[in-house]
Design a protein around this nucleic acid. Structure first.
Lengths: 217, 217
DNA sequence: CCTGTAAATGACCAGTCAGTCAGTTATAAT
DNA sequence: ATTATAACTGACTGACTGGTCATTTACAGG
């Protein structure tokens, strides 16, 4: 009876499966973390069976790496390209770098990835190594280059860039961590724009009161 | 044969068990994280069976809370007490606060706890809530109070303490995270003293070069 | 309309671990 | 020495999940 139903139980779509799996995986990794994300659920979310996932990605770790490459590494390289083109002063370039990070990562669901990496690096060292080599090294290079340019041009004081670069990005990373870990227990949410503004103010001008009043601005 | 062996299979030591379990739990939580620490192993490490652990602590979460209270909360209150006594200027007090954090937490195995909390807060929100209420709130209060004192005395510029406090502690937290997550993939280890020094320099003096040269030090 | 096969599936395994409980043993009190 | 009982244990359960594989099914090409 009714043997020619038009809807097969599933379709062959080998071209679109990988991207759909990446999207589902990104969403769930960000939402639940690495260990707690069940591949069963990733597959279900992408509309396939778990075993199908294994046709396209060797295992959980490789799936994760693919997600990070697609979602983060590519975008970092975009920003690096854009920055190289614009002829900004060091001050402006540093501000632009941090602003880009806020707008493209910290203030988006993508912020779940740095948080996840920090969270699970202890139990999955390979995740930490991968992220260190693919993501952090790129970010560090951009910050260090900016600091050195600023020092060369006389805009910045000379500081040790190997230590300063971490101090420069620390507040934004903490903001991400905060959002994902403790936000829920606070009265009012962290405003990332004000946070960045406050950070740039402190970073560039310092906390000490000027001996003589500067322009009140 | 030899029926009166002098060594019983185990001893009753209800007074010392809790502390021994706390010590074992601290070591393993710090080493492996929350989820990955098996209570079987904690018990074994303290020389008892897993079921014995449940005589003294209701469940895994309560054990963890007890560890944090004993290892962190008590020490924070000590530092707060000490600071209140010494009549330091705001600059010195801020430096003393951060230095105390480095010496008593960041540069000790205790640094595993903040790292752990950040790591597992996603999957165990109750851990995050507990840590927020018991630890972070205390830390924040100390930093905010120092910033406000400095502003009142004219030592510091007026900044929004609700945002500045996070920026002040961010580099040290990042240093902890770094040590536990990425240190292994770097050529040379992060020197926490230099890190703190660089941070205080940037925090107090800012990055911008002075218009006129100050005393060359 | 067939048919070969790549694509996809469902059922299963092996390993893990928090928490439970019935039963055993050390030891203080008598 | 006996006994009551608090302290302690070993063995177990139930729930979970990454990864595998034999089998089924869609569908392109002839």
């Amino acid at each position: 009876m009714g043997s020619r139903l038009p809807s097969p139980r599933w379709q062959r779509r080998p071209d679109s499966r990988p991207q759909e799996l990446l999207d589902a995986a990104l969403r769930l990794f960000v939402e639940r973390g690495y260990a707690a994300t069940r591949l069963e659920e990733v597959a279900q979310c992408a509309g396939v069976a778990k075993a199908t996932l294994y046709l396209y990605y060797e295992n959980k770790l490789e799936l994760f790496k693919a997600v990070v490459r697609h979602a983060l590494v590519e975008r970092i390289d975009e920003v690096a390209q854009a920055q190289a083109g614009a002829g900004l002063g060091a001050r402006e370039q540093l501000a632009a770098l941090l602003t880009a990070f806020v707008q493209r990562v910290a203030d988006t669901p993508l912020s779940g990835i740095p948080k996840l990496v920090i969270a699970e690096s202890g139990n999955f060292p390979e995740i930490a190594r991968f992220y260190h080599d693919e993501v952090i090294s790129r970010g560090r290079a951009m910050v260090v280059a900016t600091l050195e340019r600023g020092a060369a041009s006389g805009e910045f004081r000379r500081v040790d860039p190997d230590y300063a670069w971490r101090i420069v990005i620390a507040p934004l990373l903490l903001a991400i961590i905060w959002k994902h870990s403790f936000q829920a227990f606070e009265r009012e949410p962290l405003d990332l724009r004000r946070h960045l503004e406050a950070q740039l103010d402190l970073l560039l001008n310092g906390l000490a009161a000027p001996k003589k009043a500067r322009k009140p601005r």
